[in-house]
Amino acid sequence: MRKPKSAFARHGLAALASAAVVSLLPGCTPAAAPIHAAPLLFAHPGVLVSREQLDFAKQQVAAGNQPWKGAFDQLVASPYAALDHVPVPRAVVDCGSYSKPDNGCTDERKDAVSAYTDALAWYLTGDGRYADKAIEIMDAWSGTITDHTNSNAPLQSGWAASIWTRAAEIVRYTYNWPGAGRFGDMLRNVYLPKVINGSQSNGNWELTMLEATLGIAVYTEDRPTYDKAVGMYLDRVPAYVYLSSDGPMPKISARSNLRTPEAIIKYWQNQSVFVDGLAQETCRDFEHTGYGLSAIAHIAETSRIQHEDLYPQVGDRLRAAFEFHARYQLGEPLPADICGGKFDKKLGPITEVALNALHNRMGQDLPETQQLTDQIRPEGVLMFSLWETLTHAGNPN
């Protein structure tokens, strides 16, 4: 196994990343350092999947190679690819906790997933009907929505915008879409205000919101927003996944009001024993932890496509977290001092992006993650983790 160097030791943003994480000493907050991470020229399509990655997937599907052909068959057979799908846009999407009330929340996510599914189907088949359907869905929403309300508005905005931007990037840069500018206005005016300032709720909230923010920045070519999202990301990731090199307690965000060990333990779901790869939400459940880990990988993947690779900063934590959670998802009993020996193991289909980046590109060994991935392929749809066996399995680009 080739052990990677320390994540903060291999990139020009290392000092900025470490400056963004505060000490556990009460009242010790470092001076903020500006982040300059945005590319001089944005790459398009450039949110989670690149043109080169799409071309690789298209070649594999055309050749009938697995697992890509099976993943493609799953995609085109899904209701999200149905050409008779009718979008259900709303002026105001009103979402409470756990989508109660659900006034447009599920409809919005379904339409966003359908638009991305259609965008992929268009690129991989060359059938313009899929592109037209994606445009129909995106135009319906960009001509209707004005706001998100209620307690889950920031999270709902993050879920939806992280998917909208993937679909929009593919269609805008591979097809004729007259409404592309209005869609950008929607992202900028309706979604971005809800996500750009992050959240101090459970970490999956902010990580999802940052993924959306970065995607919007790429689509609208907004360099200051891109820089802000990267700075917040480098601050949040070390506060979400623990490494023993952090010391006896997890790191905390520079924007957090957690200033005592007791407060940190409570925030970490009352977990007081910390081991490599444990996440802030592990002892809540694996499903929400998976949302957070998925967003970490997605942001790093988008940054790599934009030629400002963040994997060196987060790779050590991402590898430890995926190996830790995959091990117990595969059936190994959880130690009694971790989450009381009990956990909700529903990690979900979220491993392909990180596995491909860390193992296939960077040469790191992730045996537990590989075994879990082999069991659940092809990865389908889970919230904002979509069709990732098709787009990222073994993808060298």
Rank of each mutant, 00 (worst) to 15 (best):
R2Y: 01
K5F: 10
F8A: 07
F8S: 12
G12P: 00
A15K: 11
S18D: 06
V22D: 03
V22T: 11
L25S: 05
L25W: 03
L25P: 00
P26W: 09
G27A: 03
A33K: 05
P34I: 08
L41S: 13
H44W: 14
D55C: 07
V61N: 05
Q66R: 14
W68D: 11
G70E: 13
A71C: 01
D73W: 06
Q74S: 13
A81H: 05
H85R: 15
P87L: 10
V88C: 02
R90F: 12
A91W: 00
V92H: 04
V92Q: 12
V93I: 15
D94N: 11
G96D: 00
S99M: 07
P101Q: 04
P101T: 07
K110E: 10
A112H: 10
S114V: 03
S114W: 07
W122V: 00
Y123W: 05
G128D: 12
A131Q: 00
K133N: 14
I135V: 14
I135G: 01
E136W: 00
A140S: 13
G143Q: 12
T146D: 11
H148Q: 15
P154F: 08
Q156G: 12
W159F: 15
A160H: 08
A160K: 06
A160N: 14
A161I: 05
S162G: 04
S162N: 04
W164M: 09
R166I: 04
A167Y: 15
A168C: 10
R172N: 11
Y173P: 00
N176L: 03
P178G: 06
G179I: 03
F183G: 00
G184W: 12
L187V: 01
V190H: 09
L192W: 04
K194P: 04
G198K: 13
S199R: 10
S201M: 11
L207R: 09
E211N: 15
I216F: 07
V218P: 04
T220R: 14
E221C: 00
D227V: 04
D235P: 03
V237Y: 06
A239L: 13
S245V: 06
P250C: 01
I252C: 13
R255H: 13
P261S: 12
P261K: 09
Q269S: 14
D276T: 08
A279D: 14
Q280W: 01
E281G: 06
R284V: 02
D285M: 08
F286R: 04
H288L: 01
A295H: 09
I296W: 08
H298C: 08
I299N: 02
A300T: 12
T302L: 09
H307C: 00
Y311A: 01
P312G: 02
A321L: 02
F324N: 10
H325Y: 12
P333C: 14
I338M: 14
G341M: 08
F343P: 05
K345S: 09
P349D: 07
P349K: 03
T351Y: 14
E352I: 00
L355A: 08
A357D: 06
R361N: 03
M362R: 15
P367L: 06
Q370N: 10
R377D: 12
P378D: 12
E379L: 00
L382W: 07
L382S: 00
M383L: 01
M383A: 10
L386C: 06
W387Q: 08
L390W: 04
T391P: 02
G394H: 05
